[in-house]
Design a protein around this nucleic acid. Structure first.
Lengths: 102, 102
DNA sequence: TCGACAGTACGAGATTATCGAACTATGTTG
DNA sequence: CAACATAGTTCGATAATCTCGTACTGTCGA
């Protein structure tokens, strides 16, 4: 289960995180990922009608911002919200956002 | 003191707000605007070394997202944070963000 | 080994952002 | 009032980013 490159907790900054969340598709993906941790990315994208190649890009932006870990699991990608790192680096940030978008 | 066009409280949505905050320059402008309400935009931009024409664009994005009101006051623009509308529409959203970026 | 499946890589076209130069509108000064 | 300074906008060109179709890679099951 290889882990795709991602920023360390201490090198995460706020603007990329907010930028990653500032897109309706990604915000919905984050909402779903938080509700169903360790899902396959195809499951999280279900019914969104967004092309796969676009989705790859969205996951990259979320991963590079530090919001999620992407685990290569066979031919699937498993999406793991970085609960701990985010709560540690940006305490109190995500809860209100997730509450407002669900 | 003419008011530049802005979204009504009930038509504001989360993604544009997060997108507006997801840029380091705009995040700093918001931080300053919240700390010094009704300042001139030139005062808020002081020391940031961003061209005026770029700044115009940043204020437009913040205004169109619903974060700030822009009041035309003579040859100045006065920036008024939309405390009430934001607190009403997105309760609990801004406080943690502002705390984290100051 | 063969095909189906999940997702990536690449590249073209579209969208958005940056910023210099010219312009507008308002205030100030002689 | 004329002339000028101030504060910011508009326009247009360039750059950066996003979208997504096509072709490709790696993995699994039969």
């Amino acid at each position: 289960m290889r882990l795709l490159p991602e920023p360390a907790r201490e090198s995460m900054t706020l603007p990329p995180v907010l930028h990653a969340l500032g897109d309706p598709v990604r915000l919905e993906l984050v909402r779903r990922a938080w509700a169903s941790p360790d899902s396959h990315c195809s499951a999280l994208a279900e019914g969104m009608n967004v092309p796969l190649s676009t989705m790859t890009n969205h996951w990259r932006i979320l991963r590079e911002a530090g919001l999620v870990s992407v685990l290569v699991d066979g031919r699937h990608r498993r999406i793991r919200p970085r609960y701990g790192d985010l709560g540690d680096r940006f305490p109190g940030l995500l809860d209100p956002i997730l509450r407002l978008c669900s």
